[in-house]
Design a protein around this nucleic acid. Structure first.
Length: 282
DNA sequence: AGTGTATCCTGCAGGC
DNA sequence: TGCCTGCAGGATACAC
């Protein structure tokens, strides 16, 4: 996905375009995107004013004037594209799934090629319960290295799998998990609980650094990701290991490797990220 | 508790 | 040119 930096970039782009607008009508050409009957979704959303746009983890949240929340999970290929009027020609999204028709003629389109995304309208209480099941926000100032270290210490899972679990930390996906572990000098397959305190601290710092840098660059476009204005993110060229298997490590020159576990590719530099912790006896 | 597998979908790149 | 396989930023459910 769209991971945290991509969701954040979309949110920032959407705010000036849709805050204050009223949803006049909905159109749902791909109802499997919704997690409820489209009539029910329509009744909850129709006539409501969008009073805020926020992010939680990888989710984009449209806050409505009755306290309810339209939660959008972008899946792998989801886009949220606002238009002043019905899009035509080259502008027209190729796989529109949900349209929110706005008073005054505008439209917010959720477009999703693979349809792994979801759109749902939750009451304030429902959203609160959902959010409570998600892990902390890594960029929250209250999220400390100590908190990350505590979390890691309770898991036998590989640290890369741990980072992808949204119940443990919200918003980190495969790209930034791999990049942060490279910056930390930690092999992706190391058991979470086996990381030293110093390693956990480096992972904490690296996650925050890479997420902030990616937000600054407007996210990473590998293929499908676009921001709210349809533009690509600029972080792809700054990736140090992700999808760079076979290339030389920019730091030590070793050949970057790709391994698959947990059903996902992991990328790492065997020189910078030894399989055993530094200083551990082998 | 963790892992391997399958599932939801479409599209693209690479091998032949 | 076409057909096939594998792979993709996510999330979940299942059996073991």
């Amino acid at each position: 996905m769209p991971e945290l930096p991509e969701a954040e970039t979309i949110v920032r782009g959407l705010r000036p375009a849709i805050i204050g607008r009223v949803v006049e009508q909905t159109r749902v050409p791909k109802p499997d995107i919704l997690r409820e009957p489209r009539g029910r979704f329509a009744r909850k959303v129709r006539g409501r004013r969008i009073v805020g746009v926020d992010r939680r983890g990888k989710n984009v949240l449209l806050r409505l004037d009755d306290g309810s929340v339209v939660a959008v999970n972008l899946g792998m290929t989801g886009r949220l594209l606002p238009f002043d009027s019905a899009p035509r020609g080259a502008d027209r999204p190729g796989h529109p799934a949900v349209h929110l028709l706005l008073e005054g003629g505008g439209v917010l389109v959720f477009d999703d090629t693979r349809r792994f995304g979801t759109v749902e309208c939750l009451s304030a209480a429902e959203w609160s319960a959902r959010s409570a099941r998600m892990g902390p926000e890594p960029l929250d100032e209250r999220y400390t290295a100590h908190a990350l270290r505590e979390g890691l210490s309770r898991s036998r899972a590989p640290v890369r799998s741990w980072l992808l679990d949204q119940r443990r930390i919200a918003g980190v996906g495969n790209i930034y998990a791999n990049e942060a572990l490279f910056l930390s000098g930690v092999h992706p397959r190391r058991r979470a609980r086996d990381l030293t305190g110093a390693e956990a601290t480096r992972v904490h710092r690296s996650i925050r650094r890479v997420l902030r840098a990616a937000i600054h660059a407007g996210g990473t476009t590998i293929r499908d990701y676009r921001d709210a204005s349809g533009a690509e993110g600029r972080y792809a060229r700054r990736l140090l290991v992700y999808a760079r298997d076979g290339e030389a490590c920019s730091r030590c020159g070793a050949v970057i490797e790709r391994v698959v576990f947990g059903n996902r590719s992991a990328f790492f530099c065997p020189g910078c990220q030894p399989a055993k912790s530094r200083g551990a006896s082998s």
